[in-house]
Amino acid sequence: MHIVQFLLPLRDNERRPFPRADFEKVRTELTERFGGVTAFLQSPASGAWKEEEGEGETVRDEMLLFEVMVEPLDRKWWSGYRAELERRFRQERIVVRALGTEML
Rank of each mutant, 00 (worst) to 15 (best):
A98K: 01
W49T: 12
Y81C: 02
V70P: 04
T58Q: 09
D61E: 12
F89L: 01
G56I: 00
L73C: 06
E92I: 10
L64R: 05
R90Y: 02
G56A: 05
E53C: 06
D61M: 12
Q91N: 06
G47N: 10
E84G: 01
S79H: 15
K50H: 15
R87C: 07
G47T: 09
R93W: 13
E53G: 09
K76F: 15
E55T: 05
R87Q: 15
M69I: 11
R75A: 08
A98Y: 01
E51D: 04
R88W: 09
V59K: 14
K76T: 13
E84N: 02
V70C: 07
K50S: 00
I94S: 03
K76G: 13
A83Q: 12
G54C: 04
G54Q: 13
V96A: 05
R93S: 05
L73Y: 14
K50E: 12
E53P: 12
E57F: 03
L73F: 14
E67T: 08
G47K: 12
E53A: 14
E52C: 10
E52Q: 02
R60W: 03
G54H: 09
W78Q: 01
R97P: 00
L73K: 07
I94L: 11
E53K: 14
A48W: 07
E55L: 09
W77C: 13
R87N: 12
E86D: 01
Q91I: 09
R82Y: 05
I94H: 01
G47V: 12
M69V: 14
A83I: 06
W77H: 02
E84S: 11
F66D: 00
G56Y: 11
L64P: 00
G80A: 11
Y81W: 05
E52M: 04
G47Q: 03
P72I: 02
G80V: 06
E84Y: 10
T58K: 15
Q91K: 13
F89G: 06
R82P: 00
P72W: 14
R60Q: 14
Y81A: 00
V96E: 07
K50D: 01
V95H: 04
R93D: 03
E55N: 15
G54V: 03
R88H: 04
T58F: 14
D74C: 02
V96S: 07
G80I: 04
A98I: 09
V95W: 10
L64C: 06
